[in-house]
Write a protein that binds this DNA or RNA. Structure first.
Lengths: 339, 339
DNA sequence: CTGTTAGCGCCTTCAT
DNA sequence: ATGAAGGCGCTAACAG
């Protein structure tokens, strides 16, 4: 279906009896155009209701002022707030944003790269799907020198810049907090161990345990997928056991939620019977507040930082440097009772 | 900055000693091209790593296969799930989606319409900002015959199709549920009364009260903005009062959350001391589960339905019919205790 | 079935 | 300080 005929720069040109090129330059604030002409052009543009056709301009300049984003799912708060951060900064720098969801599936992620490439985005920000093991599809960008920045769930195989939060420290703080509360047997309900973030959270936890000479009990460390069902499975395995732990560090909000709900289901009080620290984001913590302590990460900050990095690469074009930015985490204590 | 030179259909044409148009047609699966040629073209395309340039195609056809979405904020679950619904359907129909956030500000919403128009979207789906009172910016689309569909927060002033949930019924069910539980004085913490959704929720509530011959107490009906702070204000006004209500219907999740948190703060038990029904979305209900009963609406369904409507208009082009679709709500009971 | 031609709206040399 | 001309990559007539 066709659009109605629109006002083009030539209509403005005709109305003013000047050439199209002059209009184009005037609109782009080219220095070689007199102020008077510029003003005349701008006025006429407004009068005619001219709206630039980005398509034509992009085709010509092969630069779309658009950045593409690939994320697992927009409905997870961490990612939607990352997008808010991305959009906000991008907009102030004159860029718009195209979002693609991989739904945490590698095949969809491949589609995303195709879509974004077809849209000729100037750069890409991505957080990989949970089951992505092959990264060839990202070569669509790297091989063509289209800047690429990963955030949160990153890919070390590709030599790109990345923005992550300090997951290791988060895991460390979580475990040490529980230790300081007097907990004796601290479990870990973690995430898939091929993802950098869950590796680091687990390692941080282990470091804290070792530092305080805690015994590391293999069966208190559970790897769970990021689904409600699997989370409940994990919670059961930990809490139904006859000698269950007195504390749990949950590596993501789904795990934390699963723990909380199942604990409630079997009548355990938090934190009296079971102390919980979750790795989480703002709204979650507010909802479960004041029941558990959380390690907070800001999706917004991560998004902003990633965009800053990407736009630097796009505009400076100083060759894809391979920079890694680590953002801090914060422990937010909400449990009132000391144990 | 320029992109590297890319493979075009002409490269394929040259390699195969055929014309560019033939390649174009083969790639678009035109019926007038022989299977043999098609296959040859596809093979060569793959071999050369050809990636279509959507920009050029769009410019030519003046049809971008893109729909624009304007929403208040992506980080609210209702909207992010709506987007998931929109994207999913759009993708299967070959469309991609551009998202713009108004941040619940009219001025930003105006910017969004400009951005989307410049991208030459084929249609627009929008949910209006909380303070939008003037709708002229939408004429960018209507005047140019670009299909426009509103969802959830709709604008009756413009003659467009719209998709809403049954807010009236939701309000009615909420109040009637509380009545059936034996509550005697049911308050309403509602939203801005210039938005259709909050008007309808309030009206539904009033209808239920009248039906059961309840006295309508003006000071139990509070209009609140959709912020955490204002929600707490409202909660205070209702709960600090010496003769406080024994039940509250909260018109959105922020209100519900405010009530729950403040009730907890002053030591009220839910639902024993205070019954609460919230108008809400999935994750919220899961988090606060099992403490309150909720009226559930599915952002995903709303998004899907709006997209269906929009794509119909785009493809049929049967003139912008003005259809209104009302999706059902469900009451999900979670309180265990009868009062 | 396939090739030729023209042009979508804009920007950018090159000329004046 | 401005015009003229060409082309970005693709597709839609119109011819065969």
């Amino acid at each position: 279906m066709k659009k109605e005929s629109n006002i083009t720069i030539h209509d403005i040109a005709k109305a003013l009896n000047i050439s199209g090129s002059t209009v184009s330059r005037a609109l782009n604030d080219n220095s070689r155009i007199s102020e008077k002409t510029k003003k005349a052009v701008r006025d006429m543009a407004k009068q005619l209701g001219y709206q630039p056709n980005a398509l034509a301009s992009n085709l010509r300049t092969s630069c779309t002022k658009t950045i593409g984003v690939i994320i697992p799912r927009i409905s997870r708060f961490f990612f939607s707030s990352a997008i808010t951060g991305i959009e906000e900064l991008a907009r102030t720098r004159g860029y718009s944003v195209i979002i693609c969801q991989s739904n945490d599936q590698e095949s969809r992620e491949v589609d995303c790269t195709k879509t974004l490439f077809a849209s000729r985005v100037d750069g890409v920000i991505s957080s990989i799907a949970i089951n992505t093991v092959n990264f060839d599809h990202y070569k669509t960008f790297t091989s063509r020198n289209i800047p690429l920045v990963f955030f949160d769930r990153v890919c070390d195989e590709l030599e790109t810049s990345q923005v992550v939060v300090d997951d290791f420290k988060g895991g460390f703080l979580a475990a040490e907090h529980l230790i300081s509360k007097g907990c004796k047997r601290i479990a870990h309900l973690g995430g898939p161990q091929h993802l950098n973030i869950y590796i680091n959270r687990l390692q941080g936890y282990l470091k804290a345990l070792r530092k305080h000479d805690f015994e590391i009990e293999e069966d208190l460390i559970i790897e769970s997928l990021l689904t409600r069902e699997d989370g409940k499975e994990g919670a059961k395995r930990l809490l139904d056991s006859p000698n269950r732990p007195d504390a749990i560090f949950a590596a993501n909000d789904i795990s934390a939620l699963s723990i909380i709900l199942y604990a409630k289901e079997i009548g355990l009080r938090i934190p009296e019977d079971l102390a919980v620290v979750g790795f989480s984001n703002e709204p979650f913590s507010e909802f479960v507040s004041p029941s558990i302590t959380t390690i907070e990460q800001s999706g917004f900050d991560v998004g902003t930082k990633a965009t800053e990095l990407l736009l630097d690469i796009i505009t400076n074009k100083t060759g894809n440097h391979q920079e890694t930015i680590v953002l801090p985490v914060k422990l937010i204590e909400r449990e009132s009772s000391n144990r």
